[in-house]
Design a protein around this nucleic acid. Structure first.
Lengths: 337, 337
DNA sequence: CGACGGAGTCGAAGCGCTTCGACAACCTAT
DNA sequence: ATAGGTTGTCGAAGCGCTTCGACTCCGTCG
């Protein structure tokens, strides 16, 4: 293993000079710099991460806590994780992958040991038990998701309230008056993951303003659950012509069942989904949808974190504006122009 | 920040004693041990990761390289990553998430800097450019996936050859003679990711042995591509009654299109999938499938790695035996008993 | 022309931990 | 009783790096 000292010797300078060449924290003459850089190349030198962390009190590692459960939005999580990792690298950071398994203890462990300089938390619950710990430490952190109380925290998320409103507006504009919302699995609501409730709030308040009738039904993924839910919906509101689906794994079942019942999309009923673009374009009907900007969330989170680590950066909540893309699953309400 | 020295002082022992209590590398009297442990508790001590890494030359970190592209099997990758992370924790390791973006450089960087003690590589290509580096270092590594030449390497993977054979056997047993294979997207074959080819080999050789006619067609995910592929298949082999699907995102399109054409599953045609159980059970027809044992692969990889790190453990290739679960998508070939 | 300040370099002091050798105390077998 | 082992503890020497203060040159300003 090549050390700083060996590079220094090879280049005929002192160790500290090599260090300053590497960090750029003091000015170095062009000649010296080049000599040192050549030595680094020739010897194939890589700074030792542990020694660096010890001396500088910085590990250049960002911890990313992903949820342990894989019951929802897995591709979104993965996309976020990858976006976080690649963005972090462009800023010179590596990413440590923590699962939710350890819960708050992981936060303590990482903070206490100096393993990471900062954390990103995903799948934040409204009243997350990790939050007090984050508030009580001076280690920077960013949440992906929105807890109930955001004071003293930095958060990034899609504006799910606006997302709900946008879906309703789109359907209203097309003349739909009776709208059904296929929600997330009941477990998601029980867990108080904020996004589901915020979407619902947006849907409800905007429908009220626009004078629409809105029916919300939570629903597990899969065909069987969807069949039951759908039957109940048409039972209760036979005039339903608009659907909003949030649960990714309910999308295809819904489309399949509607087809089976002889209800054409978009001629008889319209469907708006909240899902990644990939799902929207690969479904059996190309779906009008509000995209979940996974990459953007990951990238934003890292950039906010890096800003904090560099001394700037304040606590703030970044809500990404939703964008609705019209595809083939929505059209005018039947009986309207 | 609490240090070892402070704990030592608080407990009235020397720093080295505290260190030995922590590592268990020398015997410590019961009394001393308890005193030290109490001090650790009271002061809330966490060993500094950097200092530890520097002194012991061990970071207790395993690097996990995931593919950058998210065009396939994303949920499987995520499940593997999570299994790796949780298993690693039970052995006292943390996981560093690397994306394929940096390519071989990432291997050099991590090996050179002592950031990680070992690596796990996913999405290994048949002739992967990272392999020479792994062979040339004494840092332990495990591949998830199988390259062309496994000499000097440790690998974990599903036995895709046996998987292909198993699918064919199942269909043959039910009396199907003409079988079509809906393969991965052409890009996957071009990239020479081994698993697709190994599956195909298994399918082919076993069909030959059993005297079946096998037609293989690569296929992108999505409805449009599937429609074209399916039309061609029935055009070329009108008597096709058995399907094997490997591409997760082709499953639902295939089922939808068959339904649309009035071909009932499993009465008219049978479908076997190679996919995670979750996909198989959530599809519109509960699919007979060979599961992709993501968790098992992740767990195995970590355990092989830990064995190597602990001094034992040799290079070996672990092929996980495939298991076929019969569900509602396969039945006797029409016209047979 | 002497004082001053910036540029460029070096030496040394740690950062918090592990680990080696030493040693005292005690126990056992001769 | 003495040599030889064990057991439990300590002190000190690093691990490879960053960073602070100090020093030497120069060029510049009053």
């Amino acid at each position: 293993m090549v050390t700083l000292a060996e590079v220094a010797q090879h280049a005929g300078v002192s160790a500290s000079t090599v260090s300053y060449v590497l960090s750029g924290k003091r000015s170095i003459s062009v000649g010296t710099r080049q000599r040192v850089e050549r030595s680094i190349q020739e010897l194939g030198y890589h700074p030792n991460a542990g020694a660096r962390a010890l001396a500088s009190n910085r590990s250049n590692i960002i911890a990313l806590m992903v949820p342990l459960r894989t019951d929802m939005y897995v591709p979104v999580m993965m996309e976020i994780a990858i976006a976080v990792a690649t963005t972090a690298r462009t800023h010179g950071y590596d990413v440590l992958l923590l699962t939710g398994e350890e819960g708050p203890d992981a936060v303590r462990r990482v903070t206490g040991s100096g393993l990471a300089d900062a954390m990103i938390l995903m799948d934040v619950e409204l009243d997350d038990e990790r939050l007090p710990l984050l508030r009580g430490t001076d280690q920077p952190s960013v949440l992906i998701g929105l807890p109930a109380d955001t004071s003293g925290l930095t958060c990034v998320d899609l504006d799910f309230g606006a997302t709900g409103a946008l879906c309703v507006e789109h359907l209203a504009m097309l003349g739909h008056r009776d709208i059904a919302v296929i929600g997330e699995a009941p477990a998601v609501y029980e867990r108080h993951t904020g996004f589901a409730e915020r979407t619902l709030d947006g849907l409800r308040s905007r429908s009220r303003e626009l004078g629409l009738r809105l029916l919300h039904r939570p629903c597990e993924g899969g065909y069987d659950a969807m069949a039951v839910t759908l039957a109940r919906i048409f039972d209760e509101r036979p005039d339903t012509t608009g659907f909003v689906v949030q649960n990714e794994s309910a999308v295809e079942p819904l489309l399949g069942l509607l087809r089976q019942q002889g209800r054409a999309v978009p001629e008889d009923v319209s469907v708006v989904a909240v899902c990644p673009d990939q799902v929207a374009t690969q479904a059996s009907v190309r779906l009008t949808s509000v995209a979940i900007p996974a990459q953007e969330m990951g990238r934003n989170a890292v950039e906010l974190l890096v800003a904090k680590l560099d001394g700037g950066g304040t606590d703030e909540v970044v809500l990404i504006a939703p964008e609705l893309t019209t595809r083939a699953s929505t059209g005018p309400a039947p009986g309207k122009s």
